[in-house]
């Protein structure tokens, strides 16, 4: 089962249990709901920007899904909270490139830090979407927030 431990690295299983960022964010600048229709995994991501509007002050999400998608949201939260938007955009691009690699090459640890644990997931074509779910949702949040979209009204 050596193959399987390449997919479910300790760090991933750990994040899937810790679920950093799990919880609805108060007063978000942008929220985005992302659904994977093949398996029903879903996530609602929210971000709040700092006063300058160029960095993520807080990030929060609610979701339901497999260990890969939930761990990925947790790992992303750790990286993105407090980071500059430009840096987060770079992270998302880097993560996407890694997830498209089908396991080839080396992951960029300087850029992605712990998130390189997901490099092994890229070999499993049916699981790439699980890993990307939170990242795609955050990308949409950033696009909405930087387009100056009005804050979603609180329910």
């Amino acid at each position: 089962m050596s193959d399987l431990s390449g997919l479910y690295q300790e760090l991933i299983l750990d994040h899937s249990r810790r679920r950093l960022g799990d919880g609805e964010l108060d007063d978000p600048h942008a929220t985005h709901h992302e659904l994977n229709p093949t398996c029903g995994d879903e996530i609602t991501m929210g971000i709040r920007l700092d006063a300058s509007g160029t960095a993520i002050e807080a990030i929060g999400w609610t979701g339901d899904g497999c260990s890969i998608s939930m761990a990925s949201a947790s790992a992303l939260t750790e990286l993105a909270a407090g980071a500059d938007l430009d840096r987060v955009r770079e992270l998302i691009d880097g993560f996407r490139t890694m997830m498209r690699s089908q396991g080839a090459g080396e992951a960029d640890e300087d850029l992605l830090g712990d998130a390189i644990a997901f490099h092994g997931v890229s070999k499993y074509v049916m699981r790439v979407k699980c890993a990307m779910l939170a990242w795609v949702a955050l990308e949409a949040c950033i696009a909405a927030a930087s387009a100056g979209a009005p804050r979603p009204s609180q329910p």
Binding site: Y8, C39, C66
Partner: peptide, 9 residues
């Protein structure tokens, strides 16, 4: 344990 993870196992 999510069904995806069960299936992968």
């Amino acid at each position: 344990v999510h069904a995806h993870d069960v299936g992968q196992f």
